[in-house]
Write a protein that binds this DNA or RNA. Structure first.
Lengths: 114, 114
DNA sequence: TTCCCATATGTGTGATTCATACATATATTG
DNA sequence: CAATATATGTATGAATCACACATATGGGAA
């Protein structure tokens, strides 16, 4: 098939956790988030910008993150996002859920431990 | 909204690997696969039967598994599936891909190791 | 003996998630 | 002045899986 096996696509529900994780450290703008995910994963995870922005709006709509426009001379305007208290709560939930899921995959599908 | 946080739903691409993993051991029929996934994962992974059967047809169409009808007196007919050589190859690919993906999640999202 | 439950397979529809193609705009570097 | 990196956005669609529903048989409980 036309699909590379260990390709760079994300798995269901991981994008939200990744974004919230990066915003947990400090406020960031969209483009920065996309670059960081790619860099820190050594290219394994590539979150296409065009997928990222709609997700940021949804996260903001759900009050998990809070954006504000930052304009500096000699720069294009950027929207910086902060994680909210509710966002931290959801992030903890997502991490827990993924840990449980991964542990189950190890048991049932015989994955090696990361 | 009406979605529980650490719910039992599968993540993208995991179903195929789970099925192939169970068929790696020996031939099994659909209902057995669904039950095994739930049992071995302690209820974490629930693969709905109605999602499972269409996937089995697709896997058979792609020659990753091979089915045959087994009829026994006092039993409803069952379709037993064997994994093919191509199926084993794809399974190895999927395991490798998930291991890579999980390792990246650990790095970027700060998951604990399973 | 009737009803429910576990077993077993199947169809049809839809929600969610993310990819891809496309569009716009600015700053830097060659 | 052209190419590239930065930066944000829209519109559409593919893929994956959930859920409601349908069918059928055997065994145990009421």
């Amino acid at each position: 098939m036309g699909k590379t096996a260990a390709d760079a696509s994300l798995r269901k529900g991981s994008a939200e956790m990744l974004i919230l994780s990066l915003l947990e450290e400090r406020a960031r703008h969209g483009y920065e988030i996309a670059k960081l995910i790619e860099q820190r994963s050594d290219g394994v995870l590539k979150f296409h910008a065009a997928s990222l922005y709609p997700l940021l709006y949804r996260l903001e709509g759900r009050r998990l993150i809070q954006g504000r426009w930052v304009e500096k001379p000699g720069q294009r305007r950027r929207r910086h996002y902060n994680i909210t208290a509710e966002g931290r709560r959801v992030l903890a939930e997502r991490r827990s859920g993924w840990n449980t899921f991964i542990a189950a995959l190890v048991r049932v599908a015989g994955l090696r431990h990361a």
